[in-house]
């Protein structure tokens, strides 16, 4: 379970998060919607531990652990996964090697047995197939020369292999056509279950037609200004952010 209380954060001395309160119980999928500049990406980076983001107050615990005190890789091993809005290219680094290295690093950190190359490839191929990804995507260099849709699918493949307890999807729908969007949504839905939670950050309602959230939160000016059920996203789509965030009008 992710529990955030009064979380404040800034970047270069500029306050972005102004006291976030949010609870995502185990097994639930929550959506965070908000206009540009509301702090959506900052929230995902603060939770995953990116450098340059200063926590000014509040707490964030995940499964009872104070994640803000942990290194990014420790958070990953604890089961936190961030699907990047802009997946990063790693020239010369083979995708399969990268994934296996990451998976085994996490398994090692958790005291689990590592997978050998054969076990890993079997697993990776099966997941890739399920996500309608061609096998050669595993052989290519990480995100190098990938189309926007391929990059996002690669994020979902990584998520499927790493089996996180909490996935944060940072505008994973941006730049996706409807087919790619469905594949991504299917990938997330396949993981849904009692031990998987997700925080789906998005600007648009569209993604939430495919990943139906348990709760929807509206983020504006670094605060959650409204929470509700899936219907809230529809209301937002109809009336725009202005109804909830007067200043954004």
């Amino acid at each position: 379970m992710l529990q955030i209380n009064g979380l404040k954060a800034s970047i270069d001395g500029k306050s972005i998060l102004n006291g976030i309160d949010l609870t995502v119980p185990q097994g639930e999928v929550h959506a965070i919607m908000g206009p540009n500049g509301s702090g959506k990406s900052t929230l995902s980076y603060v939770l995953s531990g990116r450098e340059g983001y200063e926590v000014d107050g509040g707490t964030a615990t995940f499964g009872g652990q104070d994640i803000l005190a942990m290194e990014p890789e420790e958070r990953a091993a604890a089961g936190l996964f961030l699907a990047f809005q802009y997946p990063v290219e790693l020239p010369g680094v083979n995708n399969a090697n990268f994934l296996r290295t990451a998976l085994n690093a996490q398994r090692r950190a958790r005291g689990e047995a590592e997978l050998d190359a054969v076990q890993f490839l079997k697993l990776a191929r099966a997941e890739a197939k399920r996500l309608s990804m061609p096998d050669d995507m595993l052989k290519r260099n990480v995100n190098v020369g990938f189309s926007g849709g391929e990059k996002k699918r690669n994020e979902v493949l990584q998520m499927a292999l790493l089996r996180p307890k909490l996935a944060i999807l940072d505008e994973t729908d941006s730049g996706l056509d409807i087919d790619a969007l469905k594949i991504v949504a299917d990938g997330v839905n396949a993981l849904r279950g009692p031990t998987f939670s997700a925080l789906v950050i998005t600007h648009y309602q569209r993604l939430l037609d495919h990943i139906v959230p348990d709760r929807v939160h509206i983020l504006a000016q670094g605060r959650i200004v409204k929470s509700g059920g899936p219907e809230l996203a529809h209301a937002l789509e109809a009336g725009g952010y202005a109804a909830f965030v007067p200043e954004a009008a």
Partner: peptide
Amino acid sequence: AEDQLFYCRQRGLSEED
């Protein structure tokens, strides 16, 4: 690049790895 390092660490790799 910082984003390359962060990307790897988010996936569970130590900074040196």
